[in-house]
Nucleic acid binder design. Structure first.
Length: 470
DNA sequence: CTATGGCACGGATT
DNA sequence: AATCCGTGCCATAG
């Protein structure tokens, strides 16, 4: 049984249980959509209380003061302040007018990928095409690739295939360049094309991508050179160029992170579900944890509706009763979701404090099962709450919440560090030795995996890179 | 012969 | 029950 201190209720019916589960696994954005549609369709449900904090303009929780502004500004300590925050500025409504969208496409740092792209392209399109573009953008996978083909889009919108392709072509040229491609090859080709307008691209880059992507990723440079009739040196140049300037997965924000940690590559196109930062951005202050609540106020049962039901006709009464039940169930479940997230975050932030403050190296290992035991809830509750949610850390990076349960992250970080400071290229077995001395005993094969996860080349290729640089 | 990537297995995790 | 992750074995390139 899931106890909810907030409501002093326990789960009673199976419908209740099912809905609690579903809501828990939704991201804030998805929850927002769910609530909005319910508000539109269910007359028993209404939204009240748009009180705002006079200081920070945040929408206030149902009753009580602003959790931020009511804190003394010089508060210290390690206890995080965790609360549910109805911060509307993180959300846009789906039926919002596209006119507002065209404002400052690059200024907001926390929009999801579809919005980010749409804002760039909206000014160049007529309203009809904007709809199509918006539709296309909702069918991207996490790498930024299109999951449907243009024929389906054309049929869905009753447009000519050529019109659709023209729109896709425009989309591909938006930041991140190559988004909406069908796959890595197409994305790279577009990037080359766009890049060649401003900088010189090595000769044959296009041909290499077109014909030799397999060889390229397997580092068969000599073979590739032979196949295209160019020297290995040129292939190597092209490889470096591709690695430095292009990104085969336009939607994957972590790709360029390792090499050049500039603000451009660390951008992640997800709206965070949780924000973590220092109170007033001052590092000596305790951490503030805002769990984004995606609606602008409090949900409640419409009292007029309750009145009306008493005098309703016989045939209406059943239908209305249904609405009433659905509404109260939704309210209950939304509150439980918030509450579960709050409990979860309190534990998580306390336990992984070092990671949040000091970085990936200090990640503690933690499993969902342990946390579930500690909180006295079922493992699957944690699983659902964590999955598909993202967190914005104090350093403004947005990471998936599941990162808190990544055992190998600190090892990977350590390996990266060792390799960065190496004087001669260390083979995977060398690395294994070094780590063993530090008390970390992992297999040679595993090190190889971690290394490739971090996008670090094997030892013999790092050698050649050093020589080229010197 | 050495370094490394692919495949697949088994155990842990979700 | 399904999925993920670490690992062993083997093939291949240099």
């Amino acid at each position: 049984m899931l106890q909810t201190p907030y409501l002093h209720t326990t789960i009673t019916t199976s419908a209740h249980l099912a809905q609690t589960m579903t809501l828990l696994s939704l991201t804030s954005t998805e929850l927002q959509q769910k609530i909005e549609s319910e508000l539109a369709n269910n007359p028993a449900l209404e939204l009240i209380n748009e009180r705002r904090c006079p200081m920070c303009k945040r929408l206030l929780p149902q009753n009580g003061n602003c959790p931020i502004c009511s804190q003394p500004s010089d508060l210290t300590g390690t206890e995080p302040i965790v609360f549910i925050s109805p911060r509307e500025d993180f959300y846009y409504s789906n039926n919002q007018n596209f006119e507002d969208i065209s404002d400052d496409p690059f200024s907001s740092e926390s929009v999801d990928l579809p919005t980010f792209v749409l804002r760039q392209i909206a000014p160049e399109l007529n309203p009809g095409d904007r709809l199509v573009a918006a539709y296309i953008l909702t069918h991207l996978d996490e790498d930024g690739f299109l999951t449907i083909n243009s024929y389906e889009i054309a049929r869905y919108h009753h447009r000519q295939l050529s019109e659709i392709d023209a729109i896709i072509d425009k989309l591909k040229r938006c930041e991140p360049v190559g988004v909406c491609s069908k796959g890595p090859k197409e994305a790279l080709l577009i990037q080359v094309e766009v890049l060649s307008e401003s900088v010189t691209v090595p000769k044959f880059t296009r041909e290499v991508i077109e014909n030799g992507l397999d060889e390229l990723s397997h580092h068969h440079y000599a073979e590739l050179g032979r196949k295209l009739g160019i020297s290995t040196i040129m292939v190597s140049n092209i490889t470096n160029f591709v690695a430095d300037n292009l990104n085969p997965f336009p939607g994957r924000a972590s790709w360029g992170d390792v090499r050049n940690p500039n603000e451009n590559s660390s951008k992640v196109y997800h709206k965070p579900d949780v924000l973590i930062y220092h109170l007033n951005e001052n590092p000596i202050n305790p951490l503030v944890v805002e769990i984004i609540h995606p609606i602008r106020g409090t949900l409640q049962i419409n009292p007029l509706f309750k009145q009306a039901i008493k005098q309703a006709d016989e045939d209406k009464i059943q239908e209305w009763k249904g609405d009433l039940d659905r509404a109260s169930l939704l309210i209950k479940c939304v509150q439980q979701r918030s509450n579960a997230l709050k409990m979860l975050l309190e534990k998580l932030v306390t336990y992984q404090r070092d990671f949040i403050l000091l970085g990936e190296k200090h990640m503690n290992s933690l499993t969902r099962a342990e946390l579930a035991k500690e909180l006295g809830v079922h493992e699957s509750t944690i699983s659902r709450a964590v999955s598909s949610k993202t967190i914005q850390l104090p350093n403004k990076r947005i990471v998936p919440m599941s990162i808190f349960f990544d055992r190998s992250l600190s090892f990977r970080c350590l390996i990266k560090e060792i390799i960065e400071n190496e004087t001669k290229p260390l083979s995977d077995s060398d690395l294994q030795e070094i780590l063993k001395e530090k008390g970390i005993d992992i297999a040679r094969r595993t090190i190889a995996k971690y290394r490739s996860m971090e996008g670090i080349l094997p030892a013999y290729l790092r050698q050649s890179n050093l020589e080229v640089a010197n």
